[in-house]
Simulated scan of single mutants.
Amino acid sequence: MTLGFLGSGAITEAIVTGLSTPGGPCHPIRLSPRNAAVAAGLAARFENVSVCPTNQAVVDVCDTIVLAVRPQVTPKVLSELHFAPTHTVISLVAGFSAVRIAGLVAPASAISRAIPLPSVAQRRSPIAVYPPKSAAAGLFAPLGQVFGIETEAHLNALSTATSTMAAYFGFMGHIASWVAGKGIPEPQARQYIALLFSGLASTGLEESGQSPADLAVAHSTPGGLNEQLLRHLTEHGVFDTLNDALEAVHRRASGMQPLPATSAKSE
């Protein structure tokens, strides 16, 4: 398989890194020139990676194409390209159904969707793929745990869940800054909070038989500090606000809401 990427942003960089570092499958990989710095950097790091002069050149020399461009520019980028019936297309474009992508890359008809996360670079990402037994499942199997999803509606729900990544770091950073404000050196505060949440994530995986509500109770001594903070956040509508935000993102992830305008900056 010769693998081509349309779009050379952060997620392409992470995928190529995971596939190309020692121990990976090291497919021949061809990159589009959309983000020249990232593409050139990857080509310099990995012998199996090279940069094509145009997007069409990527399509011409590759049998499997990964779409990793922004949703806002996807129709324009794909309208300028010519695909063949033999192409396999894996779309990472949020909010674009497989049917919509198929219409943009016809006559290619082998279409799948995937949601890889930046941790594919370390080969420890959860990766949702649709359909379950597709080219996307095979491609991402070495890069973490693949979750085969039966319906696009479920895939869109998981896509919505991934929108919490930046908020997670915002939450962690806010706590660390608050701690630093009490006089603790900020690097020490950040490391402490990062290890705190890392431990909680490990507990969530190890205790997968317990619900998050059960784990919350297990981590809340009656009348203790954890119980106080959780009650305060609940009573002040923090989780209601989170639910509202998820619903708003879900409308975009499901293609039910127009995409916001974007800058002309390439991925």
Rank of each mutant, 00 (worst) to 15 (best):
Q257W: 13
T86G: 15
I193T: 09
H27D: 15
A57G: 09
P116C: 05
G144F: 01
L215E: 04
N156S: 14
I193V: 15
R251W: 03
T151K: 11
V16Y: 01
D244P: 01
P142G: 08
G23E: 03
P132Y: 04
L67Q: 02
A37K: 12
Q72A: 09
R124W: 05
F169T: 08
S112Q: 08
P187F: 03
A261S: 14
H82F: 07
T74K: 08
V120P: 00
T17P: 01
K76T: 10
S97A: 10
M1H: 11
H236G: 10
A84M: 10
S119G: 07
L92V: 08
R123H: 06
G4D: 03
A135F: 07
T2V: 14
T2R: 15
V59K: 02
E267I: 08
L67H: 02
T12C: 14
G237P: 05
R231I: 05
Q145S: 15
A166T: 08
E150R: 15
S159D: 13
G204E: 09
A248E: 10
A94P: 01
A14G: 03
D60T: 07
G183C: 04
L78R: 00
V58I: 09
V66T: 01
A261W: 07
T262I: 04
L242M: 14
F96W: 13
T164D: 08
T21E: 13
Q210V: 04
S119M: 13
V16C: 00
